[in-house]
Design a protein around this nucleic acid. Sequence first.
DNA 1: AAATAGAAATAAAAGGTTTTCGGAAACGTA
DNA 2: TACGTTTCCGAAAACCTTTTATTTCTATTT
Lengths: 340, 340
Amino acid sequence: MTGRRSRSVTISDVASLAGVSIATVSKALNGKDNVRPDTRRRVLEAAEQLSFRPNALARNLLTGQSRTVGLLTSDSVGRFGIPVLLGAEDAFGAGEMAVVLCDARGDAIREQHHLRMLLSRRVDGLIVVGESTDPRPSISRELPIPVVYAYGPSDDPGDVSFTPDDVGGAVLAVRHLLATGRRRIAHVTGPTHYKAAADRAEGVRRALGEAGLEQAGETLYGAWSQRWGRQAAEMLLLTQPGLDAVFCGSDQIAAGFMEIARERGLRLPSDVAVIGYDNWEVLSAETRPLLTSVDPNLERLGHTAAQHLFAAIDGRAAPGVHSMPCRLVIRESTAPPAPA
Amino acid sequence: MTGRRSRSVTISDVASLAGVSIATVSKALNGKDNVRPDTRRRVLEAAEQLSFRPNALARNLLTGQSRTVGLLTSDSVGRFGIPVLLGAEDAFGAGEMAVVLCDARGDAIREQHHLRMLLSRRVDGLIVVGESTDPRPSISRELPIPVVYAYGPSDDPGDVSFTPDDVGGAVLAVRHLLATGRRRIAHVTGPTHYKAAADRAEGVRRALGEAGLEQAGETLYGAWSQRWGRQAAEMLLLTQPGLDAVFCGSDQIAAGFMEIARERGLRLPSDVAVIGYDNWEVLSAETRPLLTSVDPNLERLGHTAAQHLFAAIDGRAAPGVHSMPCRLVIRESTAPPAPA
DNA sequence: AAATAGAAATAAAAGGTTTTCGGAAACGTA
DNA sequence: TACGTTTCCGAAAACCTTTTATTTCTATTT
């Protein structure tokens, strides 16, 4: 029991106990020169004994830097922001940066409110996490601090943005299907108006074009849901008899597709190979067969965004929309077809 | 273009522009008395023109309060912390509180590191979000600030903890099954060593006891996964021929059970009713039939925890482990059995 | 016109740290 | 001893705001 007072222990208390001035305490604690080892030890002991924690408020006020960054997210419920957020927190937490979390919940008023609060607190920088890969309005111009956009890029190419390379992800997936001997490949994905859906469809076209193949039927746009995967499966199995692979725009769609395919007596992956997207492990590691999926490396994306925010705070910004590579996680659902 | 300087605009700048003293500016901006309306207007205009934001660091240093709370979570990957966290952020964001996010990733060293940082920043309070409902070691004694535990309670009953009422949740589920005419009810749940599993099993016992019924077979402990749900289904269908309902410890288990039940030709819910737990909508809203599930109201739990942290900061702590009621979300999987 | 009360504005202090600069002590050299 | 050099320590300023105590101004009353 140290007799917890309302007033917390200051550098002066340490100074008195160690019998030196506050300047010396500061230097001793911060590892500065010109402090005799003996004195430094005395100071350290005193600080330890009083369990002294320097008041960051005072330090920050003096230096003008808060050693804090804001993390502004607009999608509370969406699950894509979370890994990005955690990756960023990880990168900052390793340093001395604190992360202030702000969830605007898609409300512009709330966003303004949070921005004022962050500016008032003199945050050193800001990461804006989008709810989809569609570009969002830039807020960099209004702000006197560096901003990095993660997942959803800024609509201003002069800003610093990191977004997953969905085209490349789809190319990876289709090339893998081709490499395992599939030839009649269909694509089922989410709503038309999502950039993610358009990008992945584009990747499919590109990879099939390289191989000189036609896509099996038109790209089927629907929802990102399992339910849509089931519907699409029924349509595909009816209209595309020779089908031997399906690339789905989400793991949920893939799970739905596989459900129906199993029910219809198809053998997976022998008859039809399936690839999902997101590598959402609660799903991809539970399907039968286990689902091969494109992993957008969201946590790494958040990590990278954080590191570039550091750089930008340091005056070394790297403007532009940076496409971050995806990674294919191969599981059972894309084993080569059974030999005829 | 306001000619962005490195030094940001202070209250003195506003004072000069408005032709008054800084004290007057402060009073005018904070809505204090004894400022002539005319003067106040001049000050407001000047502040607006310079887009002045009071330096929160200075204010906080003066008042000794940082208007900041820490949010310490140990499970980055687990999905239960997220809603709690968002509920808390929501409650704080509505006020003027900022939320500093710290993810210890289950590492005690990292936790210490974060705690030091938070104390250094003089946060006004702390919310500790657990990764499961199992009690965790208290850290309140080492800290000079109020702490509230959310989801995973503290092992010290003198602390303030909020945790879901899993016993009550299970009672809700089983009572609902009984009310819809089910009599032979089995329970499949997660690993034995989880308090959540034990609590829910206890709830089942209690509700069946009230009705003077026996449980259909022993509680089956396994994993929280869909895979285990499938395994358990096969066992149950073999050993419990008269089974007419299953209460599952997670939505994933329930989804797995339903998969196998469908494959075996059982009609759901006519032959067997199924209830899940967590009301994880990405799953419960995608199963066939749609899954009735116990919703632990995690976001509300986080919200409540935040409000009680406010109270505790205010000196009105409410010690004890508070069990927060769950809510049953009824969907298709528990319609009454088909009339014989 | 003078006195006074009340309103409005200001000066100054406080909050805890870092940093700069000057001073003191210790030591070696002439 | 006198002096220069090095090493270590302390006084004080600076960071920006809020608040208290004080001063100035205005209007009212005598």
